[in-house]
Amino acid sequence: MTRIESGSESPAFLKNAWYVAAWDNEIGHALTAVTLLNESIVMYRDSAGKAVALENACPHRKLPLSMGRLKGDDVECGYHGLTFNPQGACTRAPGGQRIPKAACVHSYPVEERYGLIWIWMGEAAKADPSKIMNVDHWGDPAWGLNRGDAMTVEANYLYITDNLLDPSHVAWVHQTSFGNAACADSVPDMTAADNGVIVSRWMRDTEPAPFYQPFLKFQGNCDRKQHYEVRYPSHAIIKAIFVPAGTGGDDKPLHKDVFLMDSYNFLTPITENLTRYYWFQMRNFAPNDRAVSAAFATSVRTAFEEDKTILQAVHRGMNNKKSGNIDLKIDKGPLHFRKRLAQMIAAE
């Protein structure tokens, strides 16, 4: 039997996919170098404010174009002045020579959505903006948003997708925030869909976890659902549902006092060993309450730092094994995700 070990890194990344390149305010009318999926890319906004992403290597001597200058909407190489427009075509060659056919750089399709700049890393002809993950309730006046943040994690992105398909870890990693006793032992269900994997479970009649407690509209115990979903290649929706104890269930309508929080987590591999992690949260209450957004932003950041510490150490541990490692029942969702993604990568 051929297995993908949880420790072995995927041979590559899925190229034909949308990834988050940056928050929209991170890119302005200035050359900014970023590395995504091991590719060096130069980003900027043109004079109309449209984001541009070009291969960051001049076709002459491969000087990074990010070391050159913006000339209007074009980029001029800092060595001999080859100049490229936002489509990657050369508009000027030095010494009055004719522009060679091969003087062009790859221009990556870019879209802005949800305050993020998305980039298509595969064949440009296949880029379809309607494939960018949909965010439910975006712009709905009844829902609040905390715009979130980003962090760089020194770990392969698949250790993070493992984590985002593993609701059990909150019992140990987030004891003081998201976790409650019930998180440790109830067994989740796994659903394999075409676009990703879902691991979810209802926990009945439990004490609300400390992080959520102050925001609940009801007293006493709750039924709590954890919905952990990761879509290919590496975008997660983590939904938290709290309803008064006895009223929860997939077959029941949501109680009027339901607490809903959808956490969106977008992972962009920088290299095999480094990942950029973007997130924001949507909630079904206090839409315009800045204090609530700020409280969430702080708590989420604290929790994600807890994950980061663990995942970086897991990455180091798995890359430096002195003895074998084992897989447990809770690894079913994560390993299914890895298997399917590896197949998709192999099929490219």
Partner: peptide, 12 residues
């Protein structure tokens, strides 16, 4: 055995 869930192959 290890996972008991068809994940690891230990029980083959």
């Amino acid at each position: 055995f290890s996972c008991g869930a068809g994940v690891c192959g230990t029980c083959a």
